[in-house]
């Protein structure tokens, strides 16, 4: 190492411990955790809100420190302010993408809350396929995270229709996080992800074991497609969907942004289409264009 800093006694030790990539980019001399101050909290809260719509309360500074700290260290920044300007100046947007991956919560599981999938199987899908007998059916999982919801829908479709012909069905998952979309498209899950929500019989039938991991079988994977998409952006070119899942993502947005998102969703739902939101979410005071309807234990929404 040619760079030597006064007072950096551990320099040599660091270099031997680090990987080669880090060795050429030495950490700042003091390795203690970098904290975020109140101005920086505002700076990042605003930046992240602009990027993703996610609203971060000033009291949740720890969220910024724990989730962004690693990227900051990797970029050899000595403060959150330097890190902010470095991220903004990065025209390749690589840092920005890493921030998005780190700040989004990928909490999802197969068949999360059983009732929407029962609703899909016993009411919505039979109705939709009845109405669209000679037209293709389009389903969108907005904010699909690592793909569990999309594959759960695909499994329901497969069980309801038998081997599915891709031409009359479009099942799309979108998410803002590149990393999440990458995992979703690949369809590989570790044992912790698999353990959650997936009954053994469905695991054996629709997944292949890859050592400790499980990969969704191609017959299911081929029914789906995944794209990166930001709900804060324009919905132009999205087309119309018969069924939209938008569950547990708007909870991270401000009321204003929730209003905007659900209005855009209303614009791309077929007049007789179905919207399913998270089981603890409500559209009261958010989007009066939707009417809630009850079917057994679940609620779905249709346009007025």
């Amino acid at each position: 190492m040619s760079i030597s800093r006064p007072g950096h006694q551990d320099n040599k030790k660091d270099a031997t411990l680090s990987t080669s990539r880090i060795a050429v980019k030495p950490f700042p001399a003091i390795r203690k955790r970098i904290t975020i101050n109140s101005t920086e909290i505002q700076l990042f809260a605003r930046y992240i809100n602009d990027l993703t719509g996610i609203h971060i309360e000033p009291s949740k500074a720890y969220l910024l420190e724990t989730r962004l700290g690693k990227i900051l260290e990797h970029e050899s920044c000595d403060s959150f302010t330097t890190f902010y300007y470095k991220a903004k100046a990065d025209t390749s947007k690589i840092i920005e993408k890493q921030i998005i991956d780190a700040i989004t919560t990928n909490e999802t599981l197969f068949f999360r809350d059983a009732s929407p999938f029962e609703l899909l199987k016993h009411k919505i899908l039979p109705e939709v396929f009845d109405k669209r007998s000679n037209k293709s059916v389009r389903i969108w999982s907005a904010a699909c995270s690592t793909g569990q919801e999309v594959y759960s829908i695909a499994i329901i479709l497969r069980e309801l229709l038998g081997p599915v012909n891709g031409t009359n069905l479009k099942l799309v998952g979108t998410d803002i996080s590149d990393a999440a979309i990458k995992q979703a498209s690949y369809g590989m899950y570790n044992k912790f992800e698999i353990e959650r929500g997936l009954p053994r019989e469905r695991l054996q039938r629709y997944f292949e074991s890859h050592g400790e991991n499980w990969k969704i079988k191609d017959e299911i994977r081929f029914m789906t497609s995944f794209n990166r998409f930001n709900l804060m952006g324009s919905f132009a070119g999205m087309g119309k969907y018969d069924i939209i899942f938008c569950r547990n993502v708007a909870i991270y947005f401000t009321l204003d942004d929730r209003i905007k998102v659900f209005n855009k969703i209303a614009d791309c739902l077929e007049p007789d289409g179905y919207l399913i939101i998270g089981s603890t979410e409500s559209l009261t005071g958010v989007c009066p264009r939707f009417v809630p309807k009850r079917h057994l234990k679940s609620i779905f929404y249709q346009l007025r």
């Binding site: 809350d113 959650r196 089981s279 603890t280 979410e281 409500s282 559209l283 009261t284 009417v291 809630p292 009850r294 679940s298 609620i299």
Partner: peptide, 24 residues
Amino acid sequence: LRVAMETTEQVSSETIQHLEMTVA
């Protein structure tokens, strides 16, 4: 933690769904 979260979610979802239908 997950069980605790799921229980909370279950209970609040019943309340919210009831309110949602009543308001409508």
